[in-house]
Nucleic acid binder design. Structure first.
Lengths: 118, 118
DNA sequence: CTTGAAGCTCACATCCGTGTGAGGTTTTAC
DNA sequence: GTAAAACCTCACACGGATGTGAGCTTCAAG
């Protein structure tokens, strides 16, 4: 599959896909003319990359972590700790976001209730 | 309370506090010499600002939304919609983060289980 | 007074994924 | 063989909160 197809399939821009490759997150082979050809699992991989980016992991961290998903032999204790750290961070972030959501929901509630007198 | 005290109380750097003021998120009076004096509720206000920033609202949006928390008369339908939109966005973000957390947790699990043979 | 800590303004730097545009090449379809 | 669509590589720009440093002023304590 070519870059346009992968872009359409994932919602990531071609620019982003090239960036992922540049950062070592995504592999491609090339046609004789130099255009990128992506293997079958690329869609899932890009989806995963997007998830991790959205979770606040930067590309370097993702590059460290990603290989282990496909290759269990690459798992080191150091990486396990790293991963656990990221998990904790994301969990804390979710906690914090939940509280903030409650604040926003409370405000929306007030909007819904108070102007009922109007 | 002066800027150093507020910074210590909230964890926000003095730089950030000045920035919040510049963006209209935080008010202060000044000493005759020009130094900032913050009123009593400033700590809570800064904490709220930090929450909203962490939730992905930018300073302009926060500036729109913040006044309504203290003053119900400022609530307009337009702002209600705006607020609801932000709430939806944050909720979606939390959903997405939950999925990502599950992915990370799954990875950590694999680390925990697989190397048990070692 | 004097001195050191704390504050002030201004302005440039950083992060980092993504947008964008120029200028050129490859691929695909007719 | 030709035209159009897709792709290529630079390389610069951005957003937006925060860091940082220079140069100066104010405040609090001795």
């Amino acid at each position: 599959m070519r870059i346009g197809d992968l872009s359409a399939a994932t919602g990531a821009s071609a620019r982003s896909l090239r960036y992922y490759e540049e950062q070592g997150l995504l592999a491609s082979t090339r046609t004789p003319g130099g255009q990128r050809i992506y293997p079958a699992g690329a869609v899932e991989r890009v989806t995963l990359i997007q998830s991790l980016l959205a979770a606040g992991l930067n590309s370097v961290t993702i590059a460290d972590v990603l290989p282990c998903i496909s290759d269990a032999t690459l798992r080191t204790p150091w990486l396990a700790g790293r991963l656990r750290g990221e998990l904790d961070r994301v969990s804390a972030q979710i906690e914090s976001l939940n509280r903030t959501r409650d604040i926003l929901a409370g405000l929306v509630d007030q909007y819904t209730v108070t102007p009922a007198s109007a």
